[in-house]
Design a binder for these strands. Structure first.
Lengths: 109, 109
DNA sequence: CCGATCCATAACGATATGGTTATGGGATGC
DNA sequence: GCATCCCATAACCATATCGTTATGGATCGG
């Protein structure tokens, strides 16, 4: 099992709409440079750059530098702490995730 | 009362550790009065009261008044927007939640 | 070599957030 | 009736968050 970022960094990263938009774009369109992300965002480049730092520390985004370009990609595993927390939340979800886990284990070993 | 609160209210409610602790306690121990929650929390009663307001607006907690006591209980359905958002995030989780959806449809119609 | 481009960081201001104490209203007990 | 308990809200303060502009380092094109 992979080591997860501190859950608090993840929870703190999610409320900002600009950050969620960045996550959604990266998940839909794959790797994007900071420049492209800035063009699509409604804020300045320094703002995007800082948001990316927050997302990287939360484990949701990974950077790959290539020359003067920085390519960013989504890191789905970073969502794991969310699943962990939700699984604690109550019988409703715990039961369903427990069964899901069993199903997944049977289906793809 | 809306079926689901705005997703942003949910995302905004989660980062605070005191609020998450309240959610965890309610999910583990069932209904609790504000007074009990305050005793277990590390902050004052007004703080707890305001946190409960945030959680209620996020759809995570529901109140039931009985005399001078206010009983609070967890509302697992409030987590649905979180699932919705994660299902957009990437192939990894989308695939798993697709299976979850199918499983749930078979399990409880 | 030189200007332009991509990006990160610093510095700063406006607003949001989370805590406190103070106040008050409604329910309960004596 | 009156004090007490439970809770919500108001008022206020400290800090965090999120935006901006300014600056600079690194890289590429010509």
């Amino acid at each position: 099992m992979p080591v997860h970022a501190a859950p608090n960094a993840l929870f703190t990263a999610l409320p900002d709409p600009t950050r969620r938009a960045i996550c959604e774009r990266l998940s839909r369109h794959g790797e994007q440079t900071v420049h492209i992300l800035t063009d699509r965002a409604s804020v300045s480049l320094p703002a995007v750059s800082k948001h990316l730092g927050v997302l990287r520390r939360a484990g949701l985004v990974r950077n790959r530098r290539e020359g003067r370009h920085t390519h960013c990609r989504a890191e789905p595993d970073g969502l794991a702490p969310l699943i962990d927390w939700m699984s604690l939340y109550g019988a409703f979800w715990r039961e369903r995730f427990g069964r899901l886990e069993a199903l997944l284990n049977r289906m793809d070993p």
